[in-house]
Simulated scan of single mutants.
Amino acid sequence: MTAVLITGCSSGIGLETALAFARRGDRVHACVRTPGTARDLLDRARAEHLTLDVPLLDVTDDTSVTAAVEAVTEAHGPVEVLVNNAGIDRTGPVETMPPDLARTLLETNFWGPARLARAVLPGMRARGGGVIVNVSSLAGRTYAVPHGGFYAASKAALGALSEALYAEVRPYGIRVVCLEPGSFASALRHETPAGPGPYHADHAWLDGFLARVAEGAADCAEVAEAILAAAADPGTPLHTAVGKDAEAALPSLSGLSYEQWLPAFLAHAQSLTGPRPGPGE
């Protein structure tokens, strides 16, 4: 049995991934941030007669991360598979997005995986191997959309961190994979109220577009299966797109400058959401 630690398991991709590893018979530590948020996970696990632990872990807190990793290590030995899944999504203009909200995005989506990786690596090196799967996003590999700059920045930074980490830990027998899902039916995306200011209408328009895209989102179980495959297959590329939209989007950007891509994106968004508001509307 493999000791697996997964963050962000109260819903969506994390929940499905925890169940998928448990079905395989692994020792699953399905972490949630807030007490009481694992009810759906535990109900589904009981229905399938699956065994898993549900520790509390706040990826933005150094002490919480250290305590969770130490508890797993004491109970089952070093973490063998780390799945950095916890993440949040908020939209907002670069100029007016509240600084605390922007910082929380980076703390959760970038520093969270960094904290967990740093915490598990000594144990992985000691046992001579391990796998770190960072769940990023298509947004980290494509051009950033209006009002999506901070989220895209957090995911692009996670991709860069994954690349450096891949090269650093490979000599120790440790693998790193950065999965980049497209649109999936997770609880990740939350609309950010478009506050007063010069970008109010444009921000609301963009959130309306994202809501329309989410209506056709694929099942999170597909991402969970991709995570299992990445953990098991040494041939998995560092950057791995997941989902038909992600697989189609990346090649379509080849050779396009941002100035060429943006009008095409805006035309697509307007076809779903209506005309983009002009300045001051």
Rank of each mutant, 00 (worst) to 15 (best):
A144M: 02
V169L: 02
L179T: 06
A167E: 09
E163W: 10
L158Q: 06
M124A: 03
F110L: 15
G130S: 03
R125E: 08
L121K: 00
R141C: 03
V133Q: 06
L206K: 00
G149T: 01
T108W: 06
P198K: 09
L158Y: 14
L165G: 02
A185K: 08
Y166E: 10
S137R: 06
K155P: 09
P181Y: 06
L158S: 07
A114T: 11
H190A: 15
Y151Q: 06
G159K: 05
P196R: 13
H190K: 15
P198T: 13
Y172H: 15
H203V: 14
H200Q: 15
Y199S: 06
V176Q: 00
L161Q: 10
C178I: 00
G140D: 02
E191Q: 11
G123N: 04
L158G: 10
A114E: 15
S186E: 11
H200C: 10
L158D: 14
S136G: 14
A153L: 10
G123R: 07
A185H: 02
L188F: 11
P146R: 07
R118Y: 09
G182Y: 03
E180Q: 11
N109Y: 14
G173F: 03
V177H: 07
L158N: 08
M124E: 05
T142A: 14
M124F: 03
A153C: 14
N109R: 13
V169K: 03
H203Y: 03
R175K: 12
P122K: 01
L138F: 08
S186P: 12
F110P: 00
G159N: 14
G149I: 02
F110W: 04
N134Q: 14
A153R: 00
F110R: 00
A144W: 00
R175V: 13
L138D: 02
A152H: 15
S183F: 08
A117N: 02
S137Y: 04
G159M: 11
V176K: 01
L188Y: 07
D202T: 05
G195E: 07
A167M: 04
G197K: 01
G195A: 07
G173E: 12
G129M: 00
G112T: 06
H200S: 07
V145N: 11
A194D: 00
V145A: 11
P196K: 07
V133N: 13
R141I: 15
L161R: 06
V131R: 07
R175Q: 06
L179D: 14
Y143W: 13
I132F: 02
G128K: 03
R170G: 02
H190D: 13
W205S: 06
L161P: 00
V131F: 05
S183I: 10
G140E: 01
P198M: 10
P193T: 09
D202G: 15
P171L: 00
G140T: 08
M124Q: 07
I174D: 01
P193E: 01
A152Y: 06
V145P: 02
V176R: 01
L165K: 08
S183T: 14
Y172N: 05
A204H: 03
S162D: 04
R118I: 09
R141D: 15
P146H: 10
A194P: 01
P146T: 04
H190V: 10
E163N: 14
V131D: 01
V176L: 05
E191T: 13
L138M: 11
W205A: 05
A160L: 09
A185T: 01
Y151H: 12
G197D: 10
P198R: 15
L206E: 04
G123I: 03
